[in-house]
């Protein structure tokens, strides 16, 4: 099988905009699932509401496209009722960090055995470009027309503090690293959280000095710093520029987990 075999061909073409980063991350995820050797009948994709949450609709397994922010609560019910099922949750920054924030921290605390792939485009794309909890300070959106005045959420820091067993961040530029991180998340028992920054040329990029799709991908490439390197810099007392994206593995551990297959 290849990644294509996991797609519902009769649902294509998809609704994602030209240049959207979601397809890249969906491809990385399916590649990781494929490498796990999972069977379609024992795999369920779950999502909430938003651009990223449309992903399960294109995947040929059982899939539950739920209400805004609540994907993890639905997924918790599926996993506990049938621990034999492998669960992957697609979510976005608005879905997970705003309306779904409470479910996120409690899913991390329970360390429920599933993998979350968060496609963080730093904007509400589906509704037309409103500011989200991960819109960077100063970022432009339709609801922050003078620049966001709020600090952005560090989702990996949140997941780590709340108790997730595996936490990693990459971007849509880093397809190999991202695929490997998702694969590690799928292998690791307990709650795995993999965040991928994704470009949104339609609603984020064009308002925030990324004139071309490639400009934002280029930015992801040039502004990424590995967590290990950042730690070394901190030890030496060096400043990490505030616009740098910390990438890599934040935590990999083995806390007691819920819903692990017997």
């Amino acid at each position: 099988m290849s990644e294509e075999d996991w797609l519902r061909q009769d649902r294509l073409p998809h609704i994602f905009c030209a240049g959207c980063g979601n397809g890249t991350v969906i491809n990385c995820t399916l590649s990781a699932v494929e490498q796990m050797g999972w069977k379609r009948q024992e795999t369920v994709f779950v999502s909430g509401i938003g651009c990223s949450s449309r992903a399960p609709g294109y995947i040929s397994t059982d899939s539950l496209h739920t209400t805004h922010g609540r994907a993890l609560a639905f997924a918790t019910g599926i996993k506990l009722a049938n621990p034999q099922l492998n669960i992957v949750v697609f979510t976005g920054d608005g879905d997970l960090a705003a309306i779904g924030g409470n479910h996120f921290i409690h899913a991390c605390r329970r360390n429920i055995d599933l993998t979350v792939v968060c496609l963080n485009n730093m904007i509400y794309g589906m509704t037309g470009g409103q500011g989200s909890p991960t819109t960077p300070m100063g970022g432009l959106s339709t609801t922050t027309p003078y620049g966001s005045g709020e600090p952005a959420f560090d989702l990996c820091g949140l997941a780590t503090a709340a108790g997730a067993n595996y936490v990693a961040r990459w971007t849509s530029y880093h397809v190999r690293e991202l695929t490997r991180a998702i694969l590690t998340g799928l292998e690791n028992p307990g709650f795995s959280f993999v965040e991928s920054l994704v470009q949104c040329p339609t609603n984020y990029g064009r308002r925030n000095r990324f004139k071309q799709v490639a400009d934002q991908i280029e930015y992801f490439k040039s502004h990424t710093i590995l967590v290990e390197k950042a730690a070394r810099m901190r030890e030496k007392g060096e400043m990490i520029p505030p616009d740098m994206i910390l990438a890599g593995e934040f935590v990999r551990r083995n806390r007691p987990a819920l819903g692990v297959r017997p």
Binding site: T66, A73, F74, T76, G77, I78, H103
Partner: peptide, 12 residues
């Protein structure tokens, strides 16, 4: 979350 988990469980 309670009703969400119930609906998820029902789908199994």
């Amino acid at each position: 979350a309670s009703i969400a988990a119930v609906i998820g469980a029902s789908w199994t």
